[in-house]
Amino acid sequence: MKTFLSLAILVMGISCSTPTTRTEDIIEIKKVFKMQEKAWSNHDLEGFMEGYLKSDSIAYFGSAGVTYGWARMLHHYKTSYPTKAETGTLTFVLKDIHEIAKDAYWVMGTYHLARLSGDAQGKFMVIFKRIDGKWKIVADSSC
């Protein structure tokens, strides 16, 4: 029994340290987008921001120029989308996901906001990095 238990622990240790595949990475990245769609559509802007690295180094490039920092991005969203009517329902369409380095991908796609006040849509490109085992957006450019 001790031999079986030792072997089981060894196998578990090896499988837990096995690098993920590109397919697994893409599945996990897509989960971040699904979580963001749900949070945004529920006017949970803090939840939406969980997809981003919580750091002053994060960069967002949009119509107002470059914004640095997680807290500043959240403030921008809260100011620009103060109510559920402004956030509406968010849908992403991912067009391409490409590995650019170990533990880093860029994602290009479109977004659509369905709102009573008028729909909005645009294009984006984000850079994801795996940090502490979790995929986080470290740069975002939307137009």
Rank of each mutant, 00 (worst) to 15 (best):
L94V: 09
E99C: 08
M35W: 02
E37I: 05
G62P: 04
D44A: 03
T89Q: 14
K34R: 11
H112N: 13
F92L: 11
T91K: 10
T91S: 07
N42H: 01
W70M: 13
A85I: 10
S41D: 10
Y60N: 14
V93G: 09
S57C: 00
L113S: 09
A59I: 12
D44W: 01
S80V: 04
A85S: 12
G69R: 02
K38L: 06
G88V: 10
A59L: 07
I97P: 11
P82T: 00
Y111P: 00
Y77F: 15
Q36K: 06
Y77T: 03
K84Y: 02
R115M: 09
F92M: 11
S41R: 08
F92Y: 15
A59R: 12
I97D: 12
E86P: 02
S55I: 14
L94R: 05
Y81P: 13
G109R: 05
K95P: 03
Y77I: 02
G62A: 05
T110Q: 10
W40I: 04
M108D: 12
E86T: 00
K54R: 15
Y60T: 13
A104T: 14
F48T: 02
A71P: 13
H112R: 08
W106Y: 13
D44V: 10
T87D: 14
K95M: 10
H98F: 04
T89L: 11
D103A: 14
D103T: 08
H43R: 06
H76V: 05
N42M: 00
G109N: 07
H112I: 00
L94I: 15
M73C: 12
L45Y: 06
S117R: 06
K95R: 12
G65A: 06
G62Q: 02
Q36Y: 08
S41N: 12
T91Y: 00
R72W: 03
S117M: 08
H43Y: 03
D44M: 03
G109S: 08
K78V: 15
K38V: 07
E37T: 07
T83V: 04
T91P: 00
A101C: 04
L74D: 15
P82S: 12
T89H: 14
S57D: 14
G88S: 06
A71G: 10
A64I: 10
H75Q: 13
S117T: 14
L45Q: 09
A64P: 01
M73W: 03
H43P: 03
L116H: 08
T89N: 15
T67H: 02
